[in-house]
Design a protein around this nucleic acid. Structure first.
Length: 597
DNA sequence: GTAGGGTTAG
């Protein structure tokens, strides 16, 4: 610091009439204090509003990653100028607001001042202004900015239109976004398509994203790296492995396979679509990897129940000097909780502090899961109860589900009541608790819960599983016969169950209970759970040694899990079973999750 | 200067 020219008296450093590359040391100075010093000196020598200095100051204060304090300082500098006449100054300041998440109101004030001063906004002005509105989800400011853009004729500019689309989409106004998209001449603008596709993915409408993607291809528009990353996200949401592979092929042909973001999206897609091998291949083939690339691979291992591998990757990442962030730690904690690595998980949780990461609700959720799954149920209850932040129903739900698998009906009742205080609309809470009652013989309590469930009109979603054989996807719903070969599949389930019984398989207790209660329909739907139908159908149509990839979009029940284990051994198949967003790999009677799930 | 990758539980 003592050798820095900034600590010397700054005044002589300022030439009377700065021109050309002003103050050679200025671009290197990033501390607010040093900047303030320079500006004060400039003001003193009457150069406070010198264009080159102001531009330089504003640029430094509003650059990527600038602290909010820098941005506030930029505003101060700007306000000191008696009558700013150069549109570039406004634009530079606005660029700063575009990069912050709460600068929409300030940005709108800057536009107002421009108009007051009679400075005409240009296309750059609107791009930054609209970006600021999008980042802050400020639809009202965005609409006003749009109005001004229309008046000045900037609204249909090739850079402004995609920004408008994005702004409306981010602010939740899909109709206006569509309307802006409709203004694109012939609809042949890749960036506008990208904005629309991205918006669809971000609001969880992956199907819509794919429709747009096909439409742009039909028009002969060439997908860019941005297009493929968004479309890969859509594939990940849908579990569309084949389309994902097709995009991967395109990525290779188009030479986009060296881009870190594209590869990260590929790893994520493969991980979420159930092909861990392909995810690993992409990761290993990368020339360089950033924090997100490492994180996404760790999350993929964790989601496939390969906890040890996730952890060793995390250690390798740190060794290579990449700093983990909040998401990386989520992957690590998740990995620990699914491999029964309780003490390691708690240690990693504590180590977050060393990286200056404040745990969020999701991290607390992982720790709850870690404690609860391993049977430390009271400890988990206390943990949630004493959180520094307000727990959500999700947190209690995690504990309730562990109470279910540990048969802890008394604690389960307390937890169930905590959940109802926060959210009484979630069907699975009633199901888990009533099953817990059934399994522990608390029939009266169980009937009470069922009645409550009917009173609340809780919606039950039928379980659905699909399996792909020879490029055809077969869909099965719990207990029903809508698949043309569902009768074959059912017969196969019965056969499989009979064979499994010989090696110690016991059908679950609630199924037995329903039969005893004369509730045939419920018993049937349990006997023919969608994943059982899909697995059995897979057995009918493949030969030993093949891999069955079964996608279930709801939770897999313990019964089906133990069935899949035995099937993998008895019928010599590898089974990859999707369980919500996780995957279980069954081989030779063993599951990758080690039954920690 | 436009658009893009990773986020608990059930």
């Amino acid at each position: 610091m003592s050798s820095s020219p900034l600590t010397a008296t700054p005044t002589p450093l300022l030439p009377a009439k700065p021109k050309g590359p002003l103050l050679p040391h200025l671009p290197h100075c990033t501390s607010l204090r040093a900047l303030a010093q320079l500006h004060a000196a400039a003001v003193k020598s009457g150069l406070g509003a010198h264009p080159a200095l102001v531009t330089r100051l504003l640029t430094l204060c509003t650059k990527q990653g600038a602290a909010p304090a820098h941005l506030a300082y930029a505003r101060q500098v700007f306000d000191r100028i008696p009558s700013p006449g150069d549109v570039v100054w406004y634009n530079t300041l606005l660029r700063g607001y575009a990069r912050s998440s709460d600068g929409a109101a300030e940005a709108a004030r800057v536009l107002a001042r421009m108009l007051e001063e009679g400075v005409a906004p240009d296309t750059y002005t609107f791009v930054s202004l609209l970006k600021a509105c999008a980042a802050a989800r400020a639809g009202e400011e965005g609409r006003q900015a749009h109005g001004v853009a229309v008046k000045t004729g900037a609204a249909d500019h090739e850079y402004v239109l995609p920004t408008l689309i994005n702004m409306y989409a981010e602010c939740g106004d899909a109709r206006s976004a569509r309307a802006m998209f409709g203004r694109v001449p012939n609809g042949d603008c890749v960036v506008s398509y990208n904005a629309m596709i991205t918006a669809a993915v971000r609001s969880s409408r992956p199907g819509e994203a794919l429709v747009l993607f096909r439409e742009m291809q039909a028009k002969g528009l060439k997908p860019t790296s941005v297009t493929v990353t968004s479309v890969l996200s859509a594939c990940a949401l849908l579990g569309a492995l084949e389309l994902g592979r097709w995009i991967h092929e395109y990525v290779r042909k188009a030479g986009l396979d060296s881009l870190v973001k594209v590869n990260t999206a590929l790893i994520d897609m493969y991980g979420k679509c159930g092909s861990l091998e392909d995810a690993i291949d992409v990761f290993q083939g990368m020339e360089s990897r950033d924090r997100q690339a490492w994180s996404v691979m760790i999350v993929a291992y964790a989601n496939h129940s390969y906890g040890r591998e996730a952890i060793s990757l995390f250690e390798e990442m740190k060794k290579q000097g990449i700093r983990p962030d909040a998401v990386t730690f989520l992957g690590v904690l998740y990995a620990c909780s699914h491999s029964g690595m309780v003490s390691e998980g708690l240690q990693y949780f504590d180590s977050m502090r060393e990286y200056g990461i404040v745990p969020g609700i999701k991290h607390y959720g992982c720790v709850t899961d870690l404690l609860a799954r391993s049977g430390q149920l009271e400890k988990a209850y206390k943990f949630i109860d004493e959180l520094p932040i307000q727990p959500t129903a999700i947190l209690w739900r995690t504990l309730l589900s562990a109470c279910g698998s540990h048969g802890a009906v008394d604690l389960g009742k307390r937890v169930f009541e905590r959940i109802l205080e926060l959210d009484d609309t979630h069907g699975s809470d009633y199901v888990i608790f009533s099953n817990l009652c059934a399994n522990t013989g608390k029939w009266e309590e169980m009937n009470r819960v069922r009645k409550l469930m009917n009173e609340k009109g809780v919606v039950k979603v039928p379980g659905c599983s699909s399996i792909e054989i020879d490029n055809r996807v077969h869909e099965f719903f719990a207990g029903d016969g809508r698949h043309p070969q569902s009768q074959d599949a059912r017969r196969m389930v019965d056969q499989v169950i009979e064979q499994l019984k010989l090696v110690g398989y016991v059908p679950n207790t609630s199924q037995v209970f329903h039969v005893e209660m004369g509730e045939e329909e419920k018993a049937t739907s349990l006997r023919y759970h969608s994943e059982k139908l899909a697995i059995s159908f897979g057995l009918l149509n493949t030969s030993p040694g093949t891999t069955l990839r079964v996608v279930k979009n709801l939770r897999v029940c313990p019964d089906c899990h133990s069935m899949a284990k035995l099937v993998s051994m008895l019928f010599n198949r590898r089974i990859i079973l999707r369980d919500l967003n996780r995957f279980h790999h069954f081989e030779d009677g063993v599951c990758s999750c080690g039954d920690y799930w």
